[in-house]
Amino acid sequence: MSQRAAALKPEMQYADLAQQGETAQLGMWIFLATEVLFFGGMMAAYLAYRMTYNADFDAAAKESVIWIGSVNTAVLVTSSLTMVMAIHAAAERERQPIVYFLLATAALGLIFLGLKGYEYVEDYNDAVVPVLNFHPKEGNPGAVELFWLFYFYATLLHAVHLTIGIILVFFMAVRAKRGAFDAGYYAPLEVVGLYWSFVDTVWVFLFALIYPIGRSG
């Protein structure tokens, strides 16, 4: 154990590091529950309009760029894998793999954002960006616009969450590099991991709500 590890003490209000770590994780789970409701507000809007304008939502969703959506889902799912691998490495007290896996995770996050940006450009060219450039080909323009407003609000909000995640992962990589998790206390890493996988989960649902619907008919 390094000098630093020996100096690791729990904060004043905790009995030991294990309690501190578990508490931090519980805190993150509760925060994630609030996040479910936060995105949930928007999903309720989606559901309400989906019930009212079923056919128009199908027509609108046809214009979404499904190949980018699918590749992006694969990218995020993979990043969740690299994230847990980093945590696993921390549990095994191996410093180098933590750093590599974290950097891979952040890189996959950046790839997602890059693809997403490209998709927005495509959307603009397809003239489905409300306010800026909106000339839908099919369906009642109002209802179609509601779909696209949902699309942009939801994906932008998700991108903001992902950006925060990437920053946190970078920060963790720096701490890992300095040996912060060598002593076997890696609760911060686990907390970031929970957040990262949650952002992934949100995306899985957004993908289902946006891309696959309305292509078969």
């Binding site: 304008y53 128009d56 099919e138 369906g139 009642n140 323009p141 109002g142 209802a143």
Partner: peptide, 17 residues
């Protein structure tokens, strides 16, 4: 006001809003 939401079957969506 929202002519294409509840379009009558068999007619093209040409009605302007």
């Amino acid at each position: 006001m929202l002519p294409r939401t509840e379009r009558v079957a068999g007619y093209p969506p040409i009605m302007p809003t």
